[in-house]
Nucleic acid binder design. Sequence first.
DNA 1: TACATTTGCATGTATATACATTTAATACAA
DNA 2: TTGTATTAAATGTATATACATGCAAATGTA
Lengths: 149, 149
Amino acid sequence: MRLEDEIQQKEFKDDYNKAIVNILFTQSYIVTKQNNLFKPYGLSPEQYNVLRILRGQNGNPITVSSIQDRMLNKMSNASRLVEKLKQKGLVLREECPADRRQVDIMITEKGLQLLNQLQEEILNQNNNLIQLNQEEVSQLNFLLDKLRG
Amino acid sequence: MRLEDEIQQKEFKDDYNKAIVNILFTQSYIVTKQNNLFKPYGLSPEQYNVLRILRGQNGNPITVSSIQDRMLNKMSNASRLVEKLKQKGLVLREECPADRRQVDIMITEKGLQLLNQLQEEILNQNNNLIQLNQEEVSQLNFLLDKLRG
DNA sequence: TACATTTGCATGTATATACATTTAATACAA
DNA sequence: TTGTATTAAATGTATATACATGCAAATGTA
């Protein structure tokens, strides 16, 4: 559906301005759906993302600042998100012996099981969320990667 | 730059999953830049968006719920955003005589002046933000509109 | 008219983002 | 070695999102 109709705006100054608004609006569309999926599990999209980063470590610990670097939102607060996950027993946090300023974070078995449980649901939803064919998705990824320069 | 490199992820399950993450990441990229631009004026991107909706009314009042409908993030809270804008003298709020449940909102002269002041800066930034040529931006808008079904 | 339902907005709470500041540990230079 | 700068993480504050609830006005119906 055309963005102009969805937000009841007659027209945009130009395609560049429309693209900005289009990306913001589409992100909100996606996050809203993700929230619905995560909610029964007591996870926020951001917490889920941190768990995925930790799983990608294949058992190796990772510091809080490395998590921050890999997060989708560079301004979010890895320290506090990790604390929330720890309270739920989904991650472990322990002082790094080599550098006591750092804190090593690892996903727990419980955290891995939660991700597995979510996995299939998410893959299905992601495909439904994006009403594009294979060639179009590929083109979209190309354009977004190029957009950021 | 490839998303995989930016967030240090080896690969995605498929293009659909990459597209989800790509949109979230690109939104964060845009909002961060917008924040920098709005900050000197004491506006958040969301407050700016509400002001733009009000300007689009060309002097006619609009209710809080209509603002909500047109906002980029359907879950945000128009009531509280309007309150913030009112405190800054950028909007007027008055009870709707025809239906006393409703509240008519209008942008003030001060609000319009602020938008004018920002206008040029924003147009310039938007063009710099999107490193695509005209044909590519147009294609991106087509894909995002189609994506949402 | 009386009463239940719906609507429009405000408000309360939890979580997250944005950004500044603090604290402790480490690195580095005089 | 001592003092300074840098780094990693935690913490504080303001704003925004997500969602539930409350309240008053309007609507619908017996």
